[in-house]
Nucleic acid binder design. Structure first.
Length: 273
DNA sequence: AGCTTCTCCTGCGAGC
DNA sequence: TGCTCGCAGGAGAAGC
């Protein structure tokens, strides 16, 4: 499941192949994913030059002079750069043909999205899907102090506040569990009951874990395929995620699995208070 | 406003 | 072998 590191690795993977290139064709093999594909996408993009790429949270951004293509990989999506005329496989839904290659999106579970934001609609940051996103965890402004300030009115468990994405973006289920372990915080703790010192540890843990994952080239998850077609899945060893009933790598106590908001949470009762 | 639950979808593994 | 069932999850939508 792509979390922030996988999206960033994907962006870095496709960028050198598409930036500065002219789009010659757009191929849509179904009417949409999570939402319908934009009408007239092909006429919007054909003949236009890709000026650059970016990322906001887990949204991948492809910039043109007259607008931005917003791509979300959902939880099973990936982008790959392939030779022209590569036969599409099951769940290959969308191609952007650029020069002698194509950028192809595959998304089995179809939770992904492709949207178009015309420059004339105002600043991209004000797009309805981007406007309420929290801070980028890898930017300098993200800190324990900010986490502390932003959680004073949040009584929900810290794990769910992290996943909500309105304070900090890009932290999905795996990295939320791992970050809370590294910071020694019980995932059930009400966010407003955590102090500055512990938030400082948490901010550092999030930054370290996401940064390391990007360096490694993405996640370890089954669905992710790197932009060059090799698996982006590194069997990194998690401390808690998906380790229910196995011994904690620090203290040896067995890792617990609970449900929070219909999502599995893994943690060590002894190391996380 | 914030919290919780529901929902979309397919692939996979367990159990029979 | 083939079936059914439960689970996985990002995040918007809806109800409170």
């Amino acid at each position: 499941m792509p979390e922030l590191p996988e999206v960033e690795v994907t962006r870095r993977g496709v960028a050198p192949h598409i930036e500065g290139q002219t789009v010659t064709e757009v191929v849509l093999r179904r009417s949409g994913l999570r939402w319908p594909f934009p009408l007239e996408l092909s006429s919007h993009l054909s003949g236009q030059i890709i000026r650059g790429t970016g990322r906001r949270g887990k949204y991948l951004l492809i910039h043109f002079d007259h607008g931005t293509l917003i791509v979300h990989l959902g939880m099973s999506g990936n982008l790959r750069i392939l030779p022209l005329a590569t036969i599409p496989k099951k769940h290959d839904h969308f191609d952007l043909v650029v020069g002698q290659q194509l950028m192809r999106m595959n998304d089995a579970r179809r939770f992904g999205a492709v949207l178009w934001h015309p420059t004339g609609d105002g600043p991209l940051a004000e797009h309805v899907l981007l406007a309420k996103l929290g801070l980028e965890p890898l930017e300098d402004i993200f800190s324990g102090e900010i986490l502390y300030q932003q959680t004073r009115n949040r009584s929900a468990p810290i794990k769910q506040v992290l996943l909500a994405g309105d304070i900090v973006v890009g932290v999905g289920n795996i990295y939320a569990c791992e970050s809370l372990f590294e910071a020694g915080i019980n995932p059930k703790t009400a966010a407003h009951r955590i102090g500055k010192v512990r938030y400082s540890k948490l901010a550092g843990a999030i930054r370290d874990i996401l940064g390391r994952a990007i360096e490694k080239g993405g996640s370890t998850l089954r669905d992710f395929v790197g932009a060059d077609g090799r698996s982006g899945y590194f069997q990194q060893s998690y401390f808690v995620y998906d380790r229910a009933g196995e011994p904690c790598r620090v203290c040896g106590l067995l890792i617990e699995q609970i449900k929070q908001g219909q999502r599995s949470t893994f943690y060590c009762k002894s190391c996380q208070k």
